[in-house]
């Protein structure tokens, strides 16, 4: 909708299971070249949304537009340029890693050499000729990632891709994902329940809780949202509190610290001046910045209490 064309866009996407709206009026916009972090606690509706984006399930309401085309009408054309990894990895345990990719390659019609390439990208070359039932969970996950990359898609949709990976594997995959837009011009939608994962790769974030999008913007905007606080330590907090409340600033006390919402620079200077004029000794002035994790927790917790 609108003038701007997004690579992927949903409008009022809704999915109902047994009367409960598991995904509710979700509008999601993804621009080309972005790495979109789709963030939400377990059960928030990430996988359900992704299944709808891929046409695996049908929305109760709402529309999905990918590459400017309606998913419900041109699913196959759209899928040609999408690579995906949904929830747990998919695999054929009795086949080797290479043959697993071959079953997909035959349909995607990409050159045979592409199999070796994607295996190399996820560092599975050594395991290529082993049956997948011998793989560890992390290896299966990486094979799933290789499968999603096989068709050199324009859009990559990854649902919790670092599940089951060891720390080294996570770092490697994160770096790999970061490079995809730069090196191959791919756009990535990446879901996770961990902010730290998204924080390190995403350029844009969408936060979903209880099926609803509660935040969607550039990751910097999320950081801005960090609710800062100002702490001032002094010798006589009772006087200090009176002085400040005359200036319309409500404070909370902890020992001889007074805590107040963050203020602009000029206002801080004024506050300190007032306190000093009132004969108080100021020991420390400090600012507290909430971590992104705190913001995320606050945002999603707020949802839950609603």
């Amino acid at each position: 909708m609108g003038n701007q064309t997004y690579l992927l866009e949903t409008n009022g996407l809704t999915k109902t299971y047994k009367g409960a709206k598991v995904v509710n009026g979700l509008s999601l916009q993804l621009e080309e070249g972005e790495i979109y972090g789709f963030l939400g606690p377990n059960g928030a509706g990430k996988t359900t949304t992704i299944r709808m984006l891929l046409g695996l399930i049908k929305p109760a309401k709402g529309r999905v537009t990918v590459f400017g085309k309606d998913l419900s009408k041109e699913r196959i054309t759209i899928l040609k340029q999408i690579g995906s990894l949904v929830e747990s990895p998919s695999y054929y345990p009795h086949l080797t890693g290479k043959d697993n990719l071959e079953t997909l390659r035959k349909i995607l019609q990409v050159p045979k050499s592409r199999i070796a390439e994607v295996l190399e990208m996820v560092r599975l070359t050594k395991m290529a000729d082993r049956k997948v039932k011998e793989y560890s969970l992390g290896m299966k996950q990486r094979l799933g990632l290789a499968a999603s990359l096989l068709g050199s898609p324009k859009l990559l949709i990854l649902d919790e891709p670092t599940n089951g990976l060891d720390p080294a594997g996570m770092i490697y995959i994160r770096e790999l994902i970061k490079q995809l837009p730069v090196k191959y011009g791919m756009t990535v939608l990446l879901s996770s329940h961990l902010l730290s994962e998204i924080d390190q790769v995403a350029t844009k974030v969408g936060i979903i809780a209880k099926g609803e999008m509660i935040f969607q913007d550039q990751i910097d905007v999320l950081r801005e949202k960090a609710s800062r606080k100002l702490h001032v330590q002094m010798n006589d907090w009772e006087t200090g509190q009176k002085v400040l409340s005359r200036h319309g600033i409500e404070t909370a006390r902890h020992d001889n610290w007074l805590t107040m919402p963050n203020q602009p620079d000029g206002k801080i200077a004024e506050i300190v001046k007032e306190l000093v004029y009132s004969g108080l000794d100021i020991y420390r002035v400090s600012e507290e910045i909430a971590s992104l994790e705190d913001i995320f927790l606050n945002l999603t917790k707020g949802e839950e209490t609603l």
Binding site: V86, E87, S90, L108
Partner: peptide, 8 residues
């Protein structure tokens, strides 16, 4: 889910 997200 993998088979059915192939472009066929």
């Amino acid at each position: 889910k993998q088979v059915l997200t192939l472009p066929v």
